[in-house]
Amino acid sequence: MLLTFARAEALRTLRNRRYLIFVVAFPVLLYLINANIYGSRSDGSGVGYNVVLMVSMAAYGALAASMMSSAVPLATERQTGWLRQIQITPLPSWAVVAAKLGSSMALVLPSLLLVGLVAIVQQGVSLPPERWAELLVALWLGVVPFVALGLALGSALSAEAAQPATMICMFALTIAGGMWFPPELFGSGMKAVAELTPSYHYASIGWSLAGGHGPAMPDVLVVLAWAVVLGGAAAVLYRRATVRV
């Protein structure tokens, strides 16, 4: 029954035009534009910008998908009473959260796969199969902190407030992660702030893997730590929002 619920959650988001534009079309378009301008250059270690940008845009798409499919839908459902309709079914409340996490994670895959596909087809990007696999798994599992942040925002805020809050968090994390502008452009102050965010380390894991060296342990630890912290926050806020005394 958890699967039934998760499938319906995913289906509704796939039918949402805003999701399709921001999450599926935007990253692909941005990749096409940037890769056609800078794609032929390569970074200091010799990795082509068409690969670097692929990772950036896939990471951006994944970040956007994970937050957009979690925060506003949850806030809206709480407000309109749909969540209560689900609460009075036998589905336990941990399963509601698990299904939302699962469906949000599934909805990350289209942007990851599409950006990769466009990179292969249009930019002729070629990586060894195991590197593709590592990259896909890392960028996929690495979105857990962002889904958790989305669920926390959706639990804590009204639907009206969740919309702008999600946008602000999403853009701040995208920029801090260096997904739109290379992190080398950051000043030292900005870099210090960026290094505190999960998105900076999430993107770094992607770039390291694409460059053929394994992810740096600090990056993995920071992303994991944020997953635990934000996951805990989401659990507490969801409980507070749904269990009334």
Binding site: M1, A8, L11, R12, G81, R84, I88, T89, P90
Partner: peptide, 26 residues
């Protein structure tokens, strides 16, 4: 089972999908 006062539906799902979803939870 209950019909509460404020029970919005999911706008993107059809009637059949919505009913089948809730059915599947019992």
């Amino acid at each position: 089972g209950a019909m509460l006062q404020d029970g919005a539906l999911i706008p993107e799902l059809t009637v059949k999908e919505t009913v089948d979803l809730v059915r599947g939870l019992y």
